[in-house]
Design a protein around this nucleic acid. Structure first.
Lengths: 110, 110
DNA sequence: GAATTAGTTAGCCATATCGCTAAGTGTATT
DNA sequence: AATACACTTAGCGATATGGCTAACTAATTC
């Protein structure tokens, strides 16, 4: 993975990891609380968490034997920004195309 | 890959494929035009295109020996929507947390 | 201080992904 | 008719990913 977006999109490509994000969106949670809804073995799940943490989407602090995880905003915002940017270019092009089509239609009416 | 978002994010995780999206955002292009900026072999590149097409991000029509590709809006919009939704939940929670912190601060002042 | 709980480390296996080359198909172009 | 062009198909190899079990560490709880 080369840059921020690579690892971000890579991280979001897995349903388990997206589910973790969804759960964390409504508040911090421990590893076992996050693991509970998923059928997979804990080590397997931990790997998903590590991916999210390495990507900077999730941060965690260990207190005693409990590790508490929470979301980090920046990567989500950056990705959303990229998508919005693409969409902007693409929609403005569609607009131009549409007005062009109108022009053609008008010419044909004459 | 289970659902739309899985394959979408998976597709966007590769820099070559994001570059293709960026190029297509400003207008349709042929396979070779899309391939030109990339150093990889054509078959390798074609695989990336196929991923984008299978995901529904790109569509293409072949006329004569030239295949012309263009962007399809829906998947980008859906993904952006998902991110926006997550962010909304997460930001509203932050707001609640902040007001809670204010309350605590106020209590401590008393 | 023994047992339980919460997470961690190590290592295995199957499949997916990303790169390549070589050779083939069908459409222009000369 | 021969050549060149624009893909396309087939198949290889290396690495990454997502799952597992077994065994371990450290912090509570009884």
């Amino acid at each position: 993975m080369t840059n921020q977006l690579d690892s971000f999109f890579g991280a979001m490509a897995d349903p388990t990891r997206r589910a973790v994000i969804e759960q964390l969106a409504s508040g911090p949670a421990s590893v076992s609380a996050l693991h509970a809804p998923h059928k997979m073995a804990l080590p397997t799940f931990m790997r998903h968490l590590r991916v999210l943490e390495e990507t900077g989407i999730v941060r965690s602090i260990k207190k005693g034997r409990v590790r508490t995880c929470h979301i980090e905003a920046a990567p989500l915002i950056e990705a959303q920004g990229w998508l919005a940017w693409q969409r902007e270019i693409w929609e403005s092009r569609l607009d131009r195309l549409e007005s062009l089509t109108h022009d053609i239609a008008r010419n044909e009416e004459e």
